Amino acid sequence: MKAVAPGTVIFQRHRGYGVITHVNLLTGWVSARFGNESRAQDLNLSNDEVQHADGEPILFRRAPPDRMPHARLMAVVRALHEAGYQKLYLYSWPKPSGLHWRWHLFTGPRNWMQRTWREGWYGSGAEYNNNPVMGWNDVPGASTDELIHALAKFDPQGLAEALGRDEDHTAWFAQACDLLLPGYMYSLNMERPPGGGLIEAPPVPIVPVRAGLKPYAGPDIGWPPGWAGLWTGTHVLPAPKINIKGEPELR
C-alpha cells in the first residue's frame, strides 16, 4: 500500500479530490479537506471508498500499514551498526494491543536506565505524526537509507556520539533482527505476572507490528547485554521510621 500521511492527495467519489490533514494508522480514520470546504471531513479508510489521486483504492482493512514503527527503527539501527555506529541503542516498550507503545533511540554509554534524551530521538503513539524526524509525518514511506539521512541531517552531533564499537550488543541486535523482522518487534517492558513479583530473566516479549499477524512462535530472545540484574529485587516503599520515644509525630 502506498503511504498515507498528512499531505497525501486522495479522491472520494462523493466529494472529489482532497488532501489529508490528519491520519490515525491505528484506527484507520483520516481527516481531509475537499474543495472549498472550511472544515475537515472524517473518513474511514476501510469503508468510505477512499482512493489515491491516481485511482488506486486504499484497502486499509486488507493491507494495513504498520501500526507501530518499531520494526522500521530496528532496520535503521541495524544499518547504522553495520556502518560503525555501534553505540546506538533502541529502547522500546510497545503493548501487545498496539494502542500504547513507546520507543527511544539513544547513543553514547550503554546505560539503559540513565540513558540520554535528545529531541526527535523518541516517540509514542500520540506522536506518530508529530515527531520532527521519526514520526513519519514528512517521510511516511521512506526507506531505511532515507530515514538514516533524515536523522543525520536533523541531529548530526547526536548521531556522531554513536560512533564506536559495542560488539556484544551489536551481535545481540543482529540476531534479534534476523528472528523478528519484518513483522515483529521486541519489547523491553517487564510486566509482573498477576499476583507475583518480577521474574528472573523471563523471555523478552515479542509484539507484532501489523494487525492480523499471528503471535510470535519463534525462538526466545534473551535480554540485551547490560540488563542482567535489572529485574531482581522488589520495589516497595520504604518502611516508616520507628518512634522509640513514644512521642507523637507532627505531620
Score class of each variant (00 low, 15 high):
C177R: 09
M68K: 01
P203F: 06
P203S: 05
A171G: 09
G195N: 13
F173S: 07
T170G: 13
D166F: 02
W103G: 00
H149P: 09
M190L: 15
G246N: 06
T234E: 14
A71L: 02
A162N: 06
Y122R: 04
P219Y: 12
E191R: 13
H100Q: 14
Y186F: 07
R251D: 11
E191F: 11
L45C: 00
S46G: 08
F11G: 03
G218A: 12
E82S: 08
D178R: 15
F154S: 02
S124L: 13
R251Q: 14
T21E: 09
I244V: 13
W112Y: 07
R61N: 11
K153E: 13
P205C: 10
E247H: 15
V133Y: 00
W117H: 14
E200P: 02
F154E: 01
A79Y: 06
E56S: 10
K241V: 09
R192I: 10
L181S: 05
A217I: 11
I10A: 03
P65L: 01
P203I: 05
N111P: 07
K153Q: 15
I221T: 01
E37I: 08
P96W: 06
M74P: 04
N47I: 09
L73E: 05
R39E: 14
E37N: 15
A71N: 02
E37P: 04
N44M: 11
V139K: 12
G246S: 07
P57G: 03
A176G: 00
A71T: 03
R102P: 02
M113V: 10
W227K: 03
A53M: 08
W227F: 07
V209G: 01
P193N: 13
I199T: 05
D42S: 14
K214H: 06
T8M: 00
A3C: 07
P219F: 13
L151Y: 02
H100A: 13
V19C: 03
G196E: 10
E119A: 06
A5V: 04
L99Y: 11
K95A: 10
P225E: 04
V23W: 01
A211N: 07
K245A: 10
A5K: 01
A201V: 05
L159G: 01
T170D: 10
Q12M: 10
R110D: 07
G18Q: 02
G16P: 03
A201R: 02
I58W: 02
I20V: 15
F154Y: 06
N36F: 11
D178L: 11
P238M: 15
Y122Q: 03
L198E: 05
S143P: 05
D166Y: 04
R165L: 07
A176D: 01
